[in-house]
Design a protein around this nucleic acid. Structure first.
Lengths: 161, 161
DNA sequence: CATGATTAGTTTGATATCAAACTATAAATT
DNA sequence: AATTTATAGTTTGATATCAAACTAATCATG
């Protein structure tokens, strides 16, 4: 099998992806400062704002966060009065999630900070490179998620053999 | 202050950076499979292999992992016989860390798997794009770490005022 | 040399995350 | 209609990580 000589980790995409992401995340955490202003909440609140009434499963897929993570996060946001969850009439296992007006105000605060961070990243990378970068990052996501699907199918085939 | 209208999260570098990194990490975890084969150990063991006798502080900086994280990780690796730590003669607060021969064997197993993952990422991104991508990721790291340094300096200035 | 400041690594506590197992509900099958 | 299978969200437990506080050792200063 692969006896190719590994390149130094510093020459791999995986390593730099990790470091860049951690740097970005650390920077946004610093910028958000206040413990009530959580970066993780920004993505979630912003997705809810643009898709009022979505279910937790839909939110899970859109935010790439597991439903088990969202349970506690949404409980917290609900407790703080930023979101409300109502059982769906169509499917009594589901919630329909909406932002409250306090939630909209809170999101606006997060947005003010996120905009600065996003603009900084855009500037660092250069406007002429941004869409190339995003396109490569998307390719990584898409290809690795296809890989997941193929592996699951192979696993299922093995288990029925 | 910034009242610019925020773009959707799906159009930001930060979001895609997170998703791509999480996809890469999930893929490598799946590929490593065995609980003894931890992706995090690969980076650490590989840095030690190439820098025998380095200190934990040097390892912390090279791997971008906090020393508090390394304490438990190195204890585990030491318990398994993969590394050994010896107090430095030069500075009795420091360890000099080396791979054992069992550690080298273990690293070789990790390398076999990492090589496949790295090759897959290279292929997904395309050989013609790899160095551009790494260069952009490095730019993000460097710029955000300068930002940290500047913020710390400003904070120190504020505190002495 | 004594004292205060800094540093290497450790301990402790908090946080966010996911997988597995679970309960209630819905869909598919018999 | 009854039974089996699948699914939405929840609970539980494990994991990796960092920041703050800490101890012992080292460095800088007077």
């Amino acid at each position: 099998m692969p006896s190719a000589r590994p390149v130094a980790v510093e020459q791999t995409i995986a390593y730099h992806l990790r470091l860049a992401q951690e740097a970005s995340f650390a920077a946004i955490r610093r910028r958000f400062g206040d413990p009530d202003l959580k970066p993780g909440h920004y993505t979630i609140l912003s997705i809810i704002a643009r898709n009022p009434g979505l279910t937790q499963g839909e939110l899970s897929r859109a935010s790439a966060r597991d439903t088990s993570t969202l349970t506690s996060t949404l409980s917290e946001l609900s407790r703080k009065g930023y979101v409300q969850r109502q059982r769906s009439d169509v499917d009594r296992r589901s919630y329909r999630i909406e932002l409250t007006s306090a939630g909209k105000t809170h999101l606006a605060r997060l947005e003010d900070l996120a905009v600065v961070h996003d603009a900084l990243l855009d500037q660092i990378v250069g406007p002429e490179n941004k869409s190339d970068l995003i396109s490569m990052l998307k390719r990584i996501q898409d290809a690795l998620s296809v890989e997941t699907t193929l592996q699951a199918a192979q696993q299922a085939a093995v288990e029925t053999a």
